[in-house]
Amino acid sequence: MTAQDRGLAALGLDGVPALQPLTYPGLPVTVPSLLTDAELLPLLAQRGGLGAWTVDGAGHRPHRSLDEVLTGLGRAPVAGRLPVLAVGSNASPGQLSHKLARLGVPGGVPMVPVRLRGIGIGCSAHIGRAGYVAAAPYSSAEARAALVVSWLDEAQLAAVDATELPNYRRVRLPGDAYGMSLPSGERLGEAYVYVSARGLLADPVTGAPRPGGGDQAVLLDALLDASPRLRELLGPDAATWVRRAAADPELRARGTLLFAEEGWVLPWTELPVPPGRARLFYSLLAGTVSSPLSS
Rank of each mutant, 00 (worst) to 15 (best):
S92C: 15
S92H: 07
P93T: 03
P93L: 09
P93C: 12
G94K: 00
G94D: 02
Q95R: 05
Q95L: 05
S97A: 14
S97H: 05
H98E: 08
H98V: 06
A101L: 04
A101H: 01
A101W: 02
L103K: 11
V105Q: 04
V105D: 00
P106S: 07
G108I: 00
V109D: 02
P110S: 09
P110D: 05
M111H: 02
V112N: 11
V112Y: 08
P113I: 04
P113E: 13
R115N: 07
L116I: 03
R117P: 06
R117S: 15
I119V: 12
I119S: 06
S124I: 07
S124Q: 13
S124H: 11
S124W: 03
H126C: 07
H126Y: 12
I127L: 10
G128S: 15
A130N: 14
A130D: 12
A130S: 13
G131P: 11
Y132V: 05
Y132R: 10
V133W: 06
V133Q: 09
A134N: 00
A135R: 01
Y138W: 12
Y138N: 02
S140F: 10
S140I: 01
A141W: 10
A141R: 01
A141N: 13
A143V: 11
R144T: 14
A145S: 15
A145Y: 00
A146N: 14
A146Y: 09
L147K: 05
V148G: 09
V149Q: 11
S150P: 01
D153S: 10
E154S: 14
E154Q: 14
Q156V: 00
Q156S: 02
L157N: 02
L157C: 08
A159Y: 01
A159N: 06
V160L: 15
A162L: 12
T163H: 04
E164C: 06
N167M: 14
V171Q: 02
R172N: 09
R172D: 13
P174H: 08
D176Q: 14
A177W: 07
Y178H: 15
Y178E: 09
G179P: 10
M180H: 06
M180G: 08
S181H: 11
L182I: 02
P183E: 11
P183V: 08
S184R: 01
S184V: 04
G185T: 06
G185R: 10
E186T: 00
E186H: 12
R187C: 07
R187H: 13
Y192L: 13
Y194N: 03
S196C: 07
